Computed example of a mutant assay.
Amino acid sequence: MNSAKRRQKNPPPGETGQEALYLRFLSDKQIPIHVKLRDGEVVSGWIEYFDNRMIRLTREGKPNLFIYKNQIRTITESARRKTVRKTGEEEHA
């Protein structure tokens, strides 16, 4: 085999710059999210603020949370969103 073909590719960069763009999108649109923490606990709300080390999760009827990013396992958008019909009834999509 050719030595050039055997050369391994470099791993992808650890930081792509997309995290901040995605968090900005979630924050600007106030998209409801679920945050799964490293200990398995799941908290829900929307991102009001974030920086390089933490996010502020705003929750209705509950205290807001400052969560360090190194404690976050995953962030997922909530599957259920409220829509309002012309009759004024709430429906979960």
Rank of each mutant, 00 (worst) to 15 (best):
E77I: 14
M1N: 12
F25E: 09
A20M: 05
A93R: 13
I75W: 01
I67F: 03
N64A: 15
A4L: 10
W46C: 06
L65K: 09
W46K: 06
I75H: 01
A79N: 07
E41G: 06
S78A: 15
N10Y: 08
T87N: 14
E91D: 09
A93C: 08
A4V: 06
M54G: 06
V43S: 07
P13S: 07
T87Y: 01
V42P: 01
Y49E: 11
Y49M: 11
G45P: 01
I33N: 01
R24C: 06
V42Y: 05
V43L: 09
N2M: 07
E19K: 14
R80I: 07
E90W: 09
A93Q: 10
R80Q: 10
R56W: 07
A93P: 00
Y68P: 10
M1E: 09
D39M: 03
T83H: 08
R24L: 12
S27C: 11
I33M: 03
R80F: 12
I47S: 02
K29P: 00
P13I: 02
A4Q: 08
E89D: 09
I67C: 02
R85K: 11
D51A: 04
Q30H: 12
R59H: 05
Q71L: 11
Q71F: 04
A4N: 08
P13N: 05
T74V: 09
R85V: 00
